[in-house]
Amino acid sequence: MNYLIRKGWRPIAVLLLLFILWEIIVKITKVPDWLLPAPTMIINEIISGWTSFYPDLVSTAKIAVEGFLVGTTVGLVVAVSLHLVPWIRDSVYPLLILSQNVPIIVLAPLLVIWFGFGLLPKIIVITLTCFFPITVAALDGFKQVPYAHKHYMLMAGAGKSQMFWKLEWPYALPSVFSGLKISATYSVMGAVISEWLGAEKGIGVYMTLASSSFRTDKVFVAILSIMVLSLLFFAVIVAAEKYFIRWQSKGGTME
């Protein structure tokens, strides 16, 4: 906690300064609210609109978590099978990169045509944004296992599954976590995009309604909540990482 205070006060101070500047400029230049609301107005909207906004927030958080879990599973399964079966790696890896080149915005309506408005297309959208960083990070981790360690395990007679569970998987875990951190923040974005496809509630829906009715303050509330949610997810992954990977604490590679 002390550490957080010591390291965290600078960005917070900058942020506060920025808000104050923003407030002053808006007040002096008398920009209309629908163009750029002052920070105080946004805060007011958060407080007064909280009860109506709260269900949207929960809904998005829920779908983001679900999508993240599915995306993580898919990402890890893909990484492990690519790693363990070389011919799959050779034939599938280039296609994985292609899958990331398809714009989600274009793909999303297609998914609705194929799968309707239910949960499935939303989970697919989040999975598509989530799995790739995890797969790439895990594959990198597997590749970084030092030759000396592998050589020892081979000489000592380790089988393929022992090699994987006792050496490669634990060795790749820090890399997997750096992939998870990226994916966790992507998952919130993915969830919001998936809600644009059509949903009853969620930040995505709230945002669309707000912008089409020129309630710019509400748009900012949505942006702010997406940021907070992403940060929260990120923090959870960092905590999990601290718990699972204590052996790397001295290296401090991912601060």
């Binding site: 000396a148 020892y152 081979l154 000592a156 007679g157």
Partner: peptide, 12 residues
């Protein structure tokens, strides 16, 4: 493999 026990050059 695994018929001998091994100590490598680097501790590994």
């Amino acid at each position: 493999r695994g018929s001998i026990s091994f100590m490598p050059q680097t501790p590994s």
